[in-house]
């Protein structure tokens, strides 16, 4: 199996990553090797098998909707690269 450079670029964009040209080729190769390996799953007939998304059979977990203490704004923002008036600051989104 091979993966084109365009496909790698597309997936990189979805993942919000970018790569140098040289890195891009290495990644395409490594991804292709890994994906070829996982293609062996295709050997198994799973048409009547329910998927498992979780190891324990638990469904929705509910709790009372009570007001509890939460992290103060100052502390919650303390790790932010940039902040102003109790908000996170990001580069301009609307041009």
């Amino acid at each position: 199996m091979s993966i084109s450079k365009e496909e790698v670029l597309h997936v990189a964009h979805l993942a919000r990553l970018e790569f140098e040209e040289e890195e891009l080729e290495r990644f395409a190769e490594q991804l292709a090797a890994i994906l070829s390996y996982v293609e062996k799953l295709g050997e198994l007939d799973t048409s009547n098998i329910e998927p498992t998304y979780h190891a324990l059979n638990m469904t929705n977990v509910f709790r009372e909707d009570e007001i509890k203490e939460s992290t103060p704004t100052e502390e919650a923002l303390a790790n932010a690269p940039e902040r102003e008036n109790g908000f996170f600051v990001v580069p301009k989104v609307i041009k």
Binding site: V38, L41, L44, T46, I49, E50, P51, T52, A55
Partner: peptide, 14 residues
């Protein structure tokens, strides 16, 4: 082809 398939095989492993 990938995620769902793998989750089905996970059932077989379980």
């Amino acid at each position: 082809a990938y995620y769902k398939k793998a989750s089905q095989v996970r059932t077989l492993i379980v």
